[in-house]
Design a protein around this nucleic acid. Structure first.
Length: 297
DNA sequence: TATTCGTGGCC
DNA sequence: TGGCCAAGAAT
């Protein structure tokens, strides 16, 4: 029909069609899911796989079905209910967001990106995602999946650059359909394609609806040739100790003494105290005096 | 712009 | 086996 093979517009029909057939049935995508449910899901999904988020999200929605419900609970309850999703400051920020939504937004999750961006823990991606998926706004949603799909299909690179570039955002913007309702499906469809088919390590190109026009494939699927990607250090980091300390506090019924927290880092008192200080500064741990600590009240 | 911040599963 | 990676945000 068109002779300009590879034009960005050619991606729409195949990807939207693929999504219609292969989308996962996730509760936060249901029409009856509240904007609050969408916001909670988006924050939980930051750097955390769907499989791990699902049971915790269901628990949260049952326990705190509205922002007001969470705002009325102690912050520590949110941190404990966060379980082992990782990056527990997200739980704290979600609680702070709930309070802000109640106090400053009439208990309704804001609909515009600008307002959403004022909420703690809500950045560029999450604001665009919530405005779009919860409120139907036509936004440009750019997450790691979108970046990878577009890097391959359009740019021809094996992987996107380490940091989001203006060019990527501009490209993504040109690809978002003009109609808000279609844009909404497009945004989630590209993410889904990246999550299920156009994966980082071993992409399932035979299952890809745009393999025939993928610039990366047409170039012979060249290996990544950019600057070396530095991994996420873990062994011997403060994160490891902070995580262990928080695990102790989550498991405990009441306050925990320094001796109990020492198990998280038995061989290095300097690091141990630095991490504890950091947790207190972050608001994830509350000092009670006399060397006793608890999750925030 | 580069770091820091959890956790666990997978190839 | 272990490095890599997962719907990022804040500083």
């Amino acid at each position: 029909m068109s002779d300009d093979h590879g034009a960005p517009g050619d991606l729409h029909e195949p990807i939207l069609g693929w999504y219609a057939d292969h989308a996962r049935d996730l509760p936060w995508r249901h029409d009856d899911c509240s904007a609050w449910g969408v916001l909670v899901s988006e924050v939980m999904l930051q750097q955390t796989p769907v499989a791990r988020v699902l049971p915790v999200w269901l628990e949260w929605m049952e326990r705190w079905p509205t922002p007001r419900d969470l705002a009325l609970a102690p912050a520590g309850d949110a941190v404990r209910a966060w379980g082992r999703l990782g990056y527990p400051r997200r739980a704290l920020r979600l609680h702070q967001s709930a309070v802000a939504i109640v106090e400053q937004h009439g208990s309704e999750v804001p609909a515009t990106e600008a307002e959403l961006l004022t909420l703690p823990g809500v950045g560029t991606y999450t604001a665009a995602a919530v405005a779009c998926f919860a409120h139907g706004e036509r936004t440009v949603v750019v997450d790691t999946n979108v970046r990878r799909v577009e890097a391959r299909a359009v740019t021809g690179a094996a992987l996107p650059a380490a940091a989001l570039t203006r060019a990527e955002t501009a490209l993504a913007a040109t690809l978002v359909p003009a109609d808000p309702a279609v844009a909404r499906v497009w945004n989630v469809a590209v993410m889904e394609l990246g999550a299920l088919v156009c994966t980082a390590r071993s992409p399932r190109c035979p299952d890809c609806p745009v393999a025939h026009l993928c610039a990366w494939r047409l170039a012979g699927s060249p290996a990544y040739d950019g600057p070396p990607r530095k991994g996420q250090a873990w062994e011997g980091t403060d994160r490891q100790v902070r995580g262990a300390m928080l695990a102790v506090l989550r498991a405990a019924d009441g306050p925990v003494g320094l001796a109990g927290l020492a198990a998280a880092c038995p061989d290095d008192e300097v690091r141990r105290m630095r991490c504890l200080d950091g947790l207190v500064t972050d608001g994830l741990v509350e000092p009670l005096g006399r060397g006793r600590f608890t999750l925030p009240r």
